[in-house]
């Protein structure tokens, strides 16, 4: 039996008696398995492998840590990144003089909370709703308090100096713009229209569309939370 194809291990000094083919093949096979294992490992950390939560949610490929900020809530208590830990939170940025989008979305979230409360079999709880006013000049603590209580007494309204609002807003990538106008004039504020989901570790996890239907939103939320818990 000729040895035209010696394995690199045995080389040209391969014993003549036994063909080294099995050595070659076991090395090739071993390499193949190693490469395959690498692929499998790589696959599991490739971001695209995150399950798709559907068109109404966008998951962060890497959950974003929210930097340190200090705001004040509508009860007068300090509100920092610590208050975003220990439970799921839904952040919405707006302003109380917003006649249309903000009250509409907060009303939708109040209906989601009611739907959660009517469920007896739900493993999930209603996340904490945090309304971040980007209009601190007009939205005093008293103003925020009457505003939040109108929707749900558990909803939290927060605001504070623009520098601190900027930290939170840029931490989750929420855009807003308050125009420069003379005091006392009515003005319209541009603000993010999506809802920002923050996980119990205080990390920004996903961007959600506002809930058109409470039951669908609850399902979407559960899907996104499960993806977050198992993959991120």
């Amino acid at each position: 039996m000729s040895n035209k194809n010696p394995s690199p291990v045995t080389g040209s000094q391969a014993p003549l008696k036994k063909g080294p083919d099995w050595v070659t093949w076991s090395i090739v096979g071993g390499l193949l398995i190693a490469v395959l294992a690498l692929f499998v490992k790589a696959w599991s950390v490739i971001p695209e492998s995150l399950p798709d939560p559907g068109e109404h949610a966008r998951m962060m490929v890497v959950p974003r840590e929210i930097p340190d900020f200090v705001l004040r809530d509508h009860r007068g208590e300090a509100f920092s990144q610590d208050q975003l830990k220990g439970q799921w939170s839904l952040l919405f940025f707006g302003y109380t003089s917003c006649p249309d989008v903000c009250p509409f979305v907060l009303q939708e979230l109040a209906l989601v909370k009611k739907a959660f409360e009517e469920r007896t079999d739900s493993e999930r709880e209603m996340p904490e709703v945090v309304f971040v006013s980007v209009d601190p000049d007009r939205d005093s603590q008293v103003r925020l308090s009457e505003y939040m209580n109108f929707f749900d007494s558990d909803f939290v309204g927060v605001s504070g100096p623009d520098e601190e609002l900027q930290i939170l807003a840029s931490g989750v990538g929420a855009y807003y713009r308050v125009p420069d106008v003379a005091e006392g004039q009515g003005y319209l504020v541009d603000h993010a229209s999506k809802i920002f989901l923050v996980d119990p570790n205080g990390r920004f996890l996903a961007l959600l569309d506002d809930p058109h239907d409470p039951e669908e939103f609850i399902e979407l939320l559960a899907k996104v939370q499960t993806i977050g818990e198992t993959h991120l």
Partner: peptide
């Protein structure tokens, strides 16, 4: 009379 417009995730309103 106002119009809210939502584009690129930002709500804007105009008179």
């Amino acid at each position: 009379i106002h119009r809210s417009q939502i584009s690129d995730g930002v709500a804007r309103m105009e008179r």
